[in-house]
Amino acid sequence: MIIGALQFPPIENVVEWPAWFGQGQAYAFNKIAFINLLAAIITIVIFAIAGSKKQLVPRGVQNIAEVSVQFIRNEVIAPGIGHGGERYLPMLISMFFFLFFSNITGIIPLFNMPATARMATPIVLALLAWVWFIGVGLKHHGIRYITGALFPPGVPKPLYLLVTPIEFVSTFLVRPFSLAVRLFANMLAGHILLVTFSVLCITLWGFKPLVAALPLSLFMLIALTGFEVLVAFLQAYIFTILTAVYIGGALHPEH
């Protein structure tokens, strides 16, 4: 695609990656799969190292792991689930780290692509969250969880004609898609912004009449790179805490 003198790559070139092996198969392994796997491995390595150290005053990797456990406990589980939420710590901490490392690769040289800028990772985790919170609701409250969600108490009966479809759509249909689309859209937008300013910098560098504008473009690229660090963390946190809130709503529907 050529816009004036700026040659912006086609979108599929920005977000799609060829398979390294297994082309055409369901197990085809590409850059996105590699980032997902790497996110899991890095998290495992962090906790393996942290678990092997038993210092009274934690330092380094042990400190990172313990602080993150405290963070998920105090900032995700406590406000999102409350009483009885400790059992969901392994899933939530795995989700947070997996998403964070999948996001942060968007600004790491040689990767330059967040795995979550592809729909696969967000939709897998969103569907997992969806299955999980419905499963928690059914396990603890049986079918009353569904009926309670669809027919909220205290509502005049005629209004159920309006409320029940809205509750069904908002609680059981929209939630996984909103979770997935929020993460995917934010990371894709950030990725496209970085690509845009990178392409602009390259173009300005080669286009002498406008080379004076290069510092501005470079500054924007650096600023957006810094901003993407924040976005990577924030989106992982938002996804995790919303999952916790959904689980908390299913566990304590009276709240």
């Binding site: 398979a19 297994g22 198969q25 369901a26 197990y27 085809a28 392994f29 590409n30 996105i32 799969a33 997902n36 796997l37 996110a39 899991a40 998290t43 495992i44 906790f47 393996a48 942290a50 678990g51 092997s52 150290k53 038993k54 934690p58 042990q62 792991a65 313990e66 456990v69 405290q70 710590l89 392994p90 899933m91 901490i93 795995s94 989700m95 780290f97 997996f98 795995a115 592809r118 696969a120 990772t121 939709i123 897998v124 985790l125 997992l128």
Partner: peptide
């Protein structure tokens, strides 16, 4: 499909290892 497969496999691997192997020692120390 292939990205869904790898994302799901990677996350479930992480989740299971964290749940049954790697999170417990950290929690024990804490």
């Amino acid at each position: 499909t292939e990205e869904i497969v790898w994302a799901a496999a990677s996350f479930f691997l992480l989740w299971m290892l964290m749940r049954y192997v790697f999170l417990a020692p950290v929690m024990r120390v804490m």
